[in-house]
Nucleic acid binder design. Structure first.
Length: 459
RNA sequence: GGUGGGAUGGCCGAGAGGCGAGGCUCAGGACUGCACAUCCUGCUACACGGGUUCAAAUCCCGUUCCCACCUCCA
């Protein structure tokens, strides 16, 4: 089975065929850097990081663009609130996002363009739209896209132009149609601006993605991804801008669903944001990533602390299997992709089904471990590790492994001497002393188990 | 009003006409000095009412409830 993916445009699952064989271009709408990330932002990043890793594992050469929108209304607003220049605020939060992405082992994008670095491309695109009669400047210096001049509009969200609730924005008088949206906004006092043929101003919300996608992926590319809420208006308007300029634009659209709490979407206005760094106090990064990646990307993920804890327990079972396998094999297992796992991933990235495959492999692997069947153990552990790598949760990945290797060695030595003492006690059937030593070790947060090969400890 | 997505066992969470996904919890068993870990067994669910079918969680009709989008949004 070859990779099948959903397409919001056609609302069905179909075989994925890249424009250029062996190569894939993906544009993911990244952050508007106006505030720290919450787990919803990161879930989106993780979902499409898994897509990217799976494509790479499948042999594709992937160009992955994730933009940074570093100029927009909210950034200007928050900059006043936080009493700093808008560009300082944008950079501050861009760094927080970058750190969070790195902490959760997202591969860095091939290129990560900023909106403010592509004003030239935006102006070129807007000029072309005006030339082609798809956009019009107005007296105050704004430039609007004329949605009724397009060959088609709202193909992605499946709505009808006349059914849209038109916003009461008071500016309607200067627009041809209430649904026309701003490509360019004229300069206001105290706000940043760039010179254009229509006067000084700054970009509208959607134009940056049309301009940057084209700059890095060309006029036609394979996949455009982002959150569900971007379907309308953001992606709809990107299509409008790029098609209006005569470019085919994205061939396939993928949208990830929400992280919700108590059945509701995480949103700033509701004030129930869950910040990454709060959750990292509760579980390790690799466990948070496992959790956020565990639901199907098009399904809502209902957040609760209990669900997060349960998921972490589930991950530790897999992880501890791999660690014990490495111990018995005397080396870290290599990575290999199991056929059933590939089948699940090829079915529109069916991660939940893939997790079921991992569970089975772990079960079989554990049995091989008990039976000292090294050959089988090697196969199963390689397949488990290969699966985890695709999910970005390989325990030996540098992101997670770097932490405290040096300290680990010291602790290991100390625990070892304690265990030797305990073995002496056990040998003379002094279980009271043996249990006392075990309790001490357990109290320190380590897990201890006696195996036929002697005691083993782990964190 | 328009558009889209949901409701699955104690809990989480897949599936989309027949063959009990998987995990967590709990109970029992094997192993163990005990415990942990591991393995085995058990806990037969699909919002409600009709219909189609040899067969429905899955298809059709209707109903209830929930959520999202309709120019701030991952």
């Amino acid at each position: 089975m070859i990779l099948h993916l959903y397409n919001t445009l056609t609302r069905d699952i179909s075989p994925f065929k890249p424009i250029t064989p062996g190569k894939v271009g993906i544009y993911l709408c990244g952050a508007t850097v106006q505030a720290p990330p919450h787990i919803g932002h990161i879930r989106s990043g993780i979902n499409f990081d898994i897509l990217r890793r799976w494509l790479i594992t499948s042999g594709y050469e992937v160009t992955f663009i994730r933009n940074v929108t570093d100029i927009d209304d909210k950034i200007l607003h928050n900059a006043i609130h936080e009493e700093m220049p808008w560009w300082a605020l944008a950079q501050k939060y861009e760094r927080v996002f970058t750190a969070a992405y790195a902490e959760l082992n997202l591969l860095p994008p091939t290129y990560e363009p900023r909106a403010t670095g592509h004003i030239t491309q935006m102006i070129e695109l807007i000029s072309l739209l005006v030339e082609r009669g798809k956009a019009y400047p107005v007296a105050n210096g704004d430039v609007y896209l004329d949605v009724r001049a397009l060959d088609s509009y709202l193909t992605l969200s499946g709505q009808k132009l006349d059914d849209l609730q038109s916003s009461a924005d008071g500016e309607e008088s200067i627009k041809k149609n209430p649904q026309d949206f701003a490509l360019w906004k004229s300069a206001k006092p105290g706000e940043p601006s760039w010179p254009t043929p229509w006067g000084d101003g700054r970009p509208g919300w959607h134009i940056e993605c049309s301009a940057m996608a084209q700059a890095y992926l060309g006029e036609k590319f394979d996949i455009h991804a982002g959150g569900l809420d971007l379907i309308f208006p953001h992606h709809e308007n990107e299509i409008a801008q790029s098609n209006g300029a005569g470019y085919p634009f994205a061939q396939r659209w993928l949208h990830n669903a929400w992280v919700t709490t108590s059945g509701e979407k995480m949103s700033k206005s509701l004030g129930n944001t869950l910040r990454i760094y709060e959750l990292l106090k509760r579980v390790r990064g690799i466990e948070l990533r496992w959790y956020l990646g565990s639901a199907h990307y098009r399904s809502m993920l209902e957040y609760s602390p209990e669900a997060l804890d349960e998921s972490a327990v589930n991950f530790r079972r897999v992880e501890s299997f791999l660690k014990r396998a490495a111990n018995q094999l005397g080396k870290i297992p290599s990575s290999h992709i199991a056929e059933e796992f590939a089948h699940a991933m090829n079915d529109d990235l069916a991660v939940p089904a893939a997790l079921a495959v991992i569970s089975e492999l772990v079960k079989e692997g554990n049995s091989a471990l008990a039976a000292k069947d090294s050959k089988n153990l090697e196969v199963k552990s390689a397949q488990v590790r290969g699966a985890l790598a695709v999910l970005g949760c390989d325990p030996w990945d540098d992101t997670w492994a770097k932490s405290d290797a040096a300290l680990e060695e010291v602790v290991s030595g100390l625990v070892k001497s304690l265990l030797e003492e305990r073995e002496v006690a056990r040998a003379r059937k002094d279980f009271e002393s043996a249990d006392r030593i075990r309790d001490r070790i357990t109290e320190l947060g380590l897990t201890l188990e006696d195996t036929p090969d002697g005691p083993r400890w782990s964190r």
